[in-house]
């Protein structure tokens, strides 16, 4: 560990402040708790919220995994992982089952999470009502009164225009039958995984200065209509590398004439499967 840094970069007072916010967030599932977000050594939008949450809950014995769009080896994931191995000296891993803390952007790992694990989401826009109601004072009041009719106006508009609910990521959910929550920009494919998940889910929005949480085994329901029920994305073909037919696939264009390859977005799950097959 380099000299001059406190364990996990943040000072202890800041961690206490964030932990207090986290405790409140866990106590009120889906409720956005304001916190005094700090400047972090990376730009807003790259995970300043997630990194502060991780820094506040991580201990010397933790094993950290960081994914970006499901992948362990993209720039953002690599640099955040290195950040914590430098400033906290913790062990890191790419294997979902070995990790105790998983910081994620855009995905929930394909491998089911287990009790004791913590999933930390990086959130750009924590307010699910923002696109329908620009006033923060009003959105807070709407949350307080569970006044969520406008969320269905948005879904109605999707069906009217596209014939189906075309919202494919950051699909709004109702947590614990009470608060409507933005699940961060994960694909709606991952929404069902949030429901009654054994792991603790923490959400950090650095720029917007909000923290919220879903405790283990909490009900998370995606909003929908009776005649247009919630559906997840499906693909016509399996993953080209591991052959999985039940995972979220990325479309990769491989040449200049438009040849396409569909591969798992979760690099760890894909490699595990390839190893198992070999």
């Amino acid at each position: 560990m380099p000299e001059g840094y406190n364990f996990a970069y943040l000072d202890e007072q800041t961690k206490r402040m964030i932990r207090r916010a986290l405790l409140k967030a866990v106590a009120i599932p889906g409720y956005q708790v304001p916190f005094a977000s700090r400047e972090m050594p990376l730009p807003y939008g790259w995970g300043t919220g997630g990194i502060q949450v991780t820094a506040s809950v991580i201990g010397p014995g933790d094993i950290l995994k960081v994914i970006d769009q499901g992948s362990d080896d993209t720039t953002n994931a690599v640099s955040i992982r290195r950040f914590f191995s430098k400033t906290a000296g913790v062990a890191t891993t790419e294997r979902t089952i070995d990790a105790t803390i998983i910081q994620t952007r855009h995905r929930i790992p394909e491998h089911p999470l287990h009790e004791g694990q913590i999933l930390v989401y990086q959130v750009p826009i924590p307010e699910p009502l923002r696109w329908m109601e620009p006033r923060e004072t009003e959105t807070r009041k709407m949350h307080a009164l569970a006044d969520y009719g406008v969320m269905h106006v948005k879904l109605y508009e999707d069906i009217a225009r596209f014939g189906c609910i075309a919202t494919s990521y950051n699909y709004p959910v109702l947590v614990h039958h009470r608060y409507v929550m933005a699940p961060s920009p994960i694909p709606k494919f991952d929404n069902p995984k949030m429901d009654r998940m054994p792991a603790l889910q923490l959400f950090g929005a650095g720029r917007e200065k909000r923290i919220y949480a879903v405790p283990p085994y909490t009900s998370v329901k995606s909003l929908d209509f009776e005649d247009y029920p919630f559906e997840i994305q499906r693909w016509d073909q399996p993953c080209a590398l591991c052959g999985a037919a039940d995972t979220y696939l990325d479309e990769v264009i491989t040449d200049d004439v438009g040849t396409r390859l569909y591969v798992c977005s979760d690099s760890d799950a894909c490699q595990e499967r390839q190893k198992g097959a070999a």
Partner: peptide, 23 residues
């Protein structure tokens, strides 16, 4: 609401009091 269609404008009150059947 100028951002959404006429149908959604009319339907908003219905949805606000719990209508959940698109048709």
């Amino acid at each position: 609401r100028f951002g959404v269609s006429a149908g959604a404008n009319i339907g908003e009150r219905l949805m606000a009091v719990g209508a959940r059947h698109y048709g």
